[in-house]
C-alpha cells in the first residue's frame, strides 16, 4: 500500500472502496487511481456498480468503507469540508439536471457566484467562455426546456467546467440522448480530453472508450475485472467476462451459447 502522505501523483485515488445499499453490496472492494491528464473509461454491464463508483468519488453516495483521495486529500475523512472538496470535481449526469428555472447563462453562473463568490462580471465572462467552448453560446438566454438533449448536456458540461475542476466525472453522459445527438456531446468530451482534462467516464460508447481513453476499466459484479490500456481491454481482453460483455455490446444480435 502507498502511504497516504505520498506526493500528489494521482488526481484521484480509490482504496478498498465498499458500498452497500442495505443488504445489497454494490461495490466489493475497488482499488484504482487516475493520474492527472488521464482519461479513464469505466465500462461494464448494468448493475455492475460503475455509476455507484462514480457517485462515490464526489461523495454523492457515502461509501460504506474505504478511502477516496482527491489530489492528496482524503475526502472520506470525517473532518474534510465536503462542499469545498466537491468544487474541485465536476460532474455530468445522464439526465443533464440543468436548473429549469434559470436561463442557460444563469445555470453556468450560479455556482460561480454563490460558491466561488466570483463577481457578476467575472462569472458571466467565464460562463460565456465555457458555453462558447461547448458550442451553445447562442442559447445563452434560453431556458433549458427550449434546448435539445444534446445542447442541454453540453450546457451541463460548461456548468461543471466553469468551476475550474481538477477532475471531471461523466455518468453515462450520452445514454439519455437521441442517437443523432450523441456525436456532438462526444466531440466536446474528446476536445476536453485533448486539452488535458482529467476525466473519469462511465459509458457504453465503446468507440469513444477505444479512441479517447488512456485506460479502460471493466467492472462486473461490484469488482474491477480488468484494468488496462484501452487497446488491450477492448482490443484483446484477458478475461472471459470482459470478452463476453464486449461481444454482446459490439454485436447485440450475438448470443452466448
Amino acid at each position: 500500500m502507498v502511504s497516504p502522505a505520498s506526493p500528489v501523483t494521482h488526481a484521484v485515488e480509490i482504496r478498498d472502496l465498499h458500498k452497500s445499499f442495505g443488504p445489497l453490496e454494490v461495490l466489493k472492494g475497488i482499488d484504482f487511481a487516475v493520474d492527472p491528464g488521464q482519461v479513464v473509461c469505466v465500462i461494464g454491464p448494468s448493475g455492475s456498480g460503475k455509476s455507484t463508483l462514480l457517485r462515490c468519488v464526489n461523495l454523492l453516495e457515502q461509501p460504506t468503507s474505504g478511502k477516496v483521495i482527491l489530489e492528496g486529500v482524503e475526502l472520506t475523512h470525517r473532518d474534510v469540508d465536503i462542499d469545498a472538496a466537491r468544487r474541485r470535481v465536476g460532474m455530468v449526469f445522464q439526465q443533464f439536471n440543468l436548473f429549469p428555472h434559470m436561463t442557460v447563462l444563469q445555470n453556468v453562473m450560479i455556482a460561480q457566484q454563490r460558491v466561488l463568490k466570483r463577481g457578476r462580471r467575472e462569472a458571466e465572462r467565464v460562463a460565456r467562455e465555457n458555453l462558447e467552448k461547448v458550442d451553445v453560446a447562442v442559447k445563452c438566454d434560453d431556458y433549458p426546456g427550449q434546448l435539445s438533449g444534446g445542447q442541454q448536456q453540453r450546457v451541463a458540461i460548461a456548468r461543471a467546467l466553469a468551476m475550474s475542476p481538477a477532475l471531471m466525472l461523466f455518468d453515462e453522459p450520452t445514454s439519455a440522448l437521441d442517437p443523432e445527438l450523441v456525436g456532438d456531446v462526444l466531440a466536446v468530451m474528446r476536445k476536453l480530453a485533448e486539452e488535458g482534462m482529467t476525466m473519469l467516464v462511465v459509458t457504453h460508447e465503446m468507440a469513444f472508450a477505444r479512441d479517447v481513453a488512456d485506460r479502460v476499466v471493466f467492472m462486473d459484479g461490484g469488482v474491477i475485472v480488468e484494468d488496462g490500456p484501452a487497446a488491450q481491454v477492448i482490443g484483446a481482453p484477458q478475461h472471459e467476462r470482459t470478452r463476453s460483455f464486449l461481444r454482446r455490446v459490439l454485436d447485440p444480435t450475438h448470443t452466448d451459447v
Binding site: N58, L60, D83, A84, R86, R87, V89, G90, M91, F93, Q95, N97, L98, F99, I110, A111, R114, V115, L116, A156, R159, A160, M163
Partner: peptide
C-alpha cells in the same frame, strides 16, 4: 427531481 439537489451539491453548494 432528486437530480436537482445532486447537481447543486456536485457544484459545491451546501
Amino acid at each position: 427531481p432528486r437530480g436537482q439537489m445532486e447537481a447543486a451539491r456536485s457544484l459545491g453548494m451546501s
